[in-house]
């Protein structure tokens, strides 16, 4: 079967650069595309990552947003629940558990 999720995944695989392009390529409504992307991200088939720039010198350890263990707290090097900036949605292959 080829439903909206498959169509969205195919659009990602074809190298689209924006969600609007996904909408055009799949012919689905923006609302359905947004919902499908959200579902695929939650299911781990797509990865959503925040864009972060202007990091302080010395890296995440010296940043007030950094975690105690020195890792990023803003989504610069991992998915973040907080969506404070523009979001990059990247296609990633699911790894077996």
């Amino acid at each position: 079967m080829s439903g909206p999720l498959t169509a969205v995944l195919k659009a990602f695989g074809a190298g689209v650069h924006s969600v609007d392009e996904v909408v055009v390529r799949t012919g689905l409504s923006r609302d359905v595309v947004d919902a499908a992307i959200g579902h695929l991200v939650r299911a781990g088939r797509l990865e959503s990552r925040e864009l972060a720039i202007g990091c302080p010198d010395g890296g995440c350890g010296s940043c007030a947003s950094g975690q105690v263990d020195g890792s990023a707290g803003c989504g610069a090097s991992g998915p973040s629940e907080r969506r404070s900036g523009p979001v990059l949605v990247t296609l990633s292959l699911r790894r077996p558990h």
Partner: peptide, 19 residues
Amino acid sequence: LPLVVGFGCNVPAISATRI
């Protein structure tokens, strides 16, 4: 993404290549 981070600081940018 890591390249954009690099314009702030190269150190976290290198770490960000893990994505």
